[in-house]
């Protein structure tokens, strides 16, 4: 019995060490973001300090970071909505008819490097005059969100009892009513997971906006990248930018923690 106690204590020690390694760097960037300019790079580090907002003030004043954050909101929300609007009916149809081709095609989108799409897109959207618009970012980010929505929703759609749909058909419900009134309420939990993952993936995505955004449509991620040259000498503001772009994904995923890993891994099992 004693040995079991010791083993359990050893487990706790290992776990504590791992959690420290995972958590401390994140806490660290949050701390630096709230340190004054003189304290931010001082070694040994000051663990007790008076938090200040001067880094955030500087970031927003000097770099139009607010505008970039709004752009990110527009792009991430837009591509999430587009992914849901296209993906929910598609997931229903794919699951109902056990179609396999859409899953295969969207799997390509998940496996191919993003840079593969960028050159064709740049040529296509330059011809269409869309480069630098919000629309081009929403469309290209939806190429990320649509597969996520379909893959996350498929298991939920598969679990939808077929009798439910069939009895609604017998009652004379139209197909769109069946989707809206029968299927969607049952899979709404999955839709929340799909929407949150889509938003986070789109928010976090770097390289599409790096190439296809314009000065007015830069996302917060790209603005942070552009800020690095300056941020090398201004760590406080750099970390303030990191905090701003890290917060939405961290907060949103708190809401779906239990289903997060399942959502991220969906598709891999069949693939």
């Amino acid at each position: 019995m004693v040995s079991r106690h010791i083993l359990r204590a050893l487990d706790r020690i290992q776990l504590t060490i791992i959690l420290a390694i995972l958590g401390i760097p994140i806490v660290w960037i949050f701390m630096l973001a709230f340190k004054s300019r003189t304290e931010v790079a001082s070694l040994p580090p000051k663990l007790i300090f008076t938090p200040t907002l001067e880094n955030f003030v500087e970031l927003f004043n000097r770099n139009d970071f607010l505008h970039a954050t709004i752009n990110s909101m527009i792009v991430a929300s837009g591509s999430t909505v587009l992914g849901i609007v296209l993906g929910v009916p598609a997931a229903f149809a794919i699951s109902w008819h056990r179609m396999s081709w859409p899953a295969t095609i969207t799997l390509f989108a998940r496996m191919a490097p993003g840079t593969l799409f960028l050159l064709p897109w740049l040529i296509m959207f330059t011809k269409l005059g869309l480069v630098g618009s919000h629309l081009v970012l929403i469309l290209t980010h939806a190429a990320i969100t649509l597969p996520v929505v379909i893959w996350v929703l498929l298991p939920y759609m598969d679990a939808l009892p077929r009798e439910l749909v069939e009895s609604a058909q017998i009652d004379g419900a139209r197909q769109d009513q069946i989707l809206r009134l029968v299927a969607i309420p049952v899979v709404s939990g999955g839709m929340v997971v799909a929407a949150i993952l889509s938003f986070v993936f789109s928010w976090n995505y770097f390289v599409f906006a790096l190439v296809l955004s314009g000065i007015r449509t830069k996302t917060a991620i790209v603005a942070s990248f552009n800020f690095i040259g300056e941020g090398v000498t201004n760590w406080g503001a750099l970390m303030a930018a990191a905090v701003i772009i890290a917060l939405p994904p961290l907060i949103l995923t708190l809401l779906i923690q239990k289903r997060l890993v399942g959502g991220l891994a969906s598709g891999a099992v069949k693939g």
């Binding site: 598609a90 859409p102 390509f108 296509m124």
Partner: peptide, 26 residues
């Protein structure tokens, strides 16, 4: 009521335009 295939059509059109065509073009 036979088929819900059409519900996948918008996603398919999007996928062909934004993923399939660019891969071919690449």
């Amino acid at each position: 009521l036979a088929g819900y295939h059409w519900m996948a059509a918008p996603a398919m059109v999007f996928t062909i335009g934004m993923i399939g065509f660019p891969i071919g073009y690449a």
